[in-house]
């Protein structure tokens, strides 16, 4: 017999964006943008520079108030205070440069969410943090180091360790493989997939890395013309007739990645 945790109504999609509009002064960034992320999938978001990917991420995270429309995480409207705290501790974020607290060691960085949100005994928190650091693929002695002493790739891993500290249901990654060498980037892709499988995560990632899209993304959302113009597996997008999507996936780099993975 196989059972699982009792279902307490997690039927709502992890992320649902409806009719989102964002504008900076006279510039319209998003107009009537809709996006649904399914539970358990790895969704990649692509779009040209300046198409508002980071703005969309900030809006979903509640760091920016939408000018119109609604963002729901697990069925909660994030703009309606109240249950924010509940939602916040179910999500983990890896910012582009790791955004680690530079005054703390890696171990303390990973412990920070526990100290903020739980009453666990310190000893267990220390062990949990060490476990998450190990899960993120960092060597054991990395915990005692300050972020400034780490390489770029290790800093990202430390950022992931902090993001998965509280076993989030939803993980946001902003350009996880940018600035990594191809070997480190491959390892990082692998890490994301392993973590998704081990922790049952839903992953929302912004990336330009065609290899990442091919290797780990279940679906890819394309942000262009101020809205999400397509959400589909990479193979379907490669056949798309839309000019931007075609240029993106059928350019020289796109073809190279396609050859590797098909």
């Amino acid at each position: 017999m196989t059972s699982d945790a009792p279902d307490r109504g997690s039927a709502a999609p992890p992320i649902r964006v409806t009719g989102l509009r964002t504008e900076f002064g006279d510039t319209l960034i998003h107009d009537d943008l809709n996006l649904d992320v399914k539970a358990g999938e790895i969704l990649g978001l692509v779009g040209g520079s300046g198409s508002g990917k980071s703005v969309l991420l900030n809006t979903i995270l509640g760091l920016k108030t939408p000018d119109a429309g609604k963002v729901e995480l697990f069925g909660h409207d994030i703009q309606e205070g109240g249950e924010r705290d509940e939602v916040e501790r179910r999500i983990g974020v890896l910012f582009q440069n790791g955004a680690l607290f530079s005054a703390l060691t890696v171990q303390e960085n990973v412990e920070a969410p526990f100290l903020e949100h739980s009453d666990l005994p310190m000893e267990l928190v220390g062990k949990l943090a060490a476990l998450k650091i190990k899960l993120a693929g960092l060597p054991e002695d990395a915990g005692a180091k300050k972020p400034a002493e780490l390489s770029g790739g290790m800093r990202k891993r430390a950022g992931i360790a902090r993001a998965i500290a509280l076993d989030p249901a939803l993980l946001f990654l902003d350009e996880p493989t940018s600035g990594l060498d191809p070997i480190a980037a491959n390892e990082f892709d692998e890490l994301i997939r392993t973590l998704r499988d081990a922790l049952g995560l839903t992953v929302f990632l912004i990336t330009h890395d065609l290899d990442t899209l091919h290797a780990i993304c279940d679906r890819v959302a394309v942000l262009a013309e101020r809205k999400v113009i397509a959400v589909a597996p990479v193979e379907d997008l490669e056949r798309s007739e839309h000019p931007w999507v075609r240029d993106f996936f059928q350019g020289p780099r796109g073809r190279a990645a396609q050859r590797t993975y098909n």
């Binding site: 307490r8 109504g9 709502a12 729901e72 697990f74 069925g75 909660h76 249950e83 179910r90 249901a169």
Partner: peptide, 13 residues
């Protein structure tokens, strides 16, 4: 803690 007329919250307390 569920708000009436709301989608079922992800985690009820």
């Amino acid at each position: 803690m569920s708000v009436p007329g709301h989608n079922p919250p992800f985690e009820v307390g």
